[in-house]
Design a protein around this nucleic acid. Structure first.
Ligand SMILES: [Zn+2]
Ligand SMILES: [Zn+2]
Ligand SMILES: [Zn+2]
Ligand SMILES: [Zn+2]
Lengths: 130, 130
DNA sequence: TTAGTTATTGTTATAATATAACATTGTGTA
DNA sequence: TACACAATGTTATATTATAACAATAACTAA
């Protein structure tokens, strides 16, 4: 469950766009799409994106420099994320697996160190592309 | 074990630099450091980096846009990587865990799909920074 | 209310990261 | 040799992201 944050105007505009999208959106594509709503500069987009990531409403797909809305109720505050990415059609899906998140949250490295924050990106071919 | 590839001149210069480095290096920092060896343009660096990633001699740390030499004998061909990243000092370590790689290689998503390629980045504080 | 404080926004410029396009050179091989 | 192919060199440009500073709006506390 996401903590309720009341979004500001720009944050709401940009979140709505990302949330409606069926694919991850890139910052400058977002910029292009919200210019008619008065958001004219990259920085306005990046500021909203930063905040939305911070509060867990969206995630950044690091290998693609793109942003996707969170649809994972298990995803507490954007600290532990996992995605599958199709290398052909670029479809991205957030993975919601109790087993996986438990395994990773409990994973200890050689030094016995545990990590509460991680990002995992799986690559392969989606159903359609196989 | 890495398949032996004989590196070309530019690839060797750039690999040596990354391999000697104690921290991940960014492309333009690499460029700056190899200009005295005759590599003058970004593209020359990016081409070498692409190839080195492809053959598994280095990995890209996606969240940092930086490159690190592979020191993980378990790491077959750059298809399955895991790192820990200190959020204060930015120290990056490649994780070599039989358990982790086995778990992830066998992980199946909701649709029963398995992924042989993945990238995992853990975030936290290293020993020194704790 | 009012002044002080902080978050958000707007704006211009610029930094940092990455690729396109094309000409040239080297390397292996039939 | 002649062909194919990989690697290199070079210029220009595309894409992603932040710095710096001014102006507003929203929130607090006296
Ligand atoms: Zn999520
Ligand atoms: Zn696909
Ligand atoms: Zn490796
Ligand atoms: Zn550290």
């Amino acid at each position: 469950m996401h903590k309720e944050h009341s979004l500001t105007k720009n944050q709401q505009i940009i979140f709505d766009l990302i949330d409606k999208s069926t694919e991850p959106l890139k910052a400058y594509s977002i910029l292009f799409n919200v210019q008619k709503k008065g958001i004219k500069a990259p920085l306005q987009v990046y500021r909203a994106l930063d905040k939305l990531v911070e509060i867990g409403k969206i995630h950044k797909i690091e290998s693609r420099n793109a942003f996707i809305a969170c649809h994972n109720s298990r995803c507490q505050v954007a600290k532990a994320t996992a995605f599958s990415i199709c290398e052909i059609c670029e479809k991205v899906t957030e993975i919601s697996s109790a087993g996986l998140s438990k395994y990773l949250a409990n994973f200890k490295d050689k030094d016995g160190m545990k990590y509460s924050k991680y990002n995992l990106e799986f690559f392969g071919l989606c159903k359609k592309c196989r």
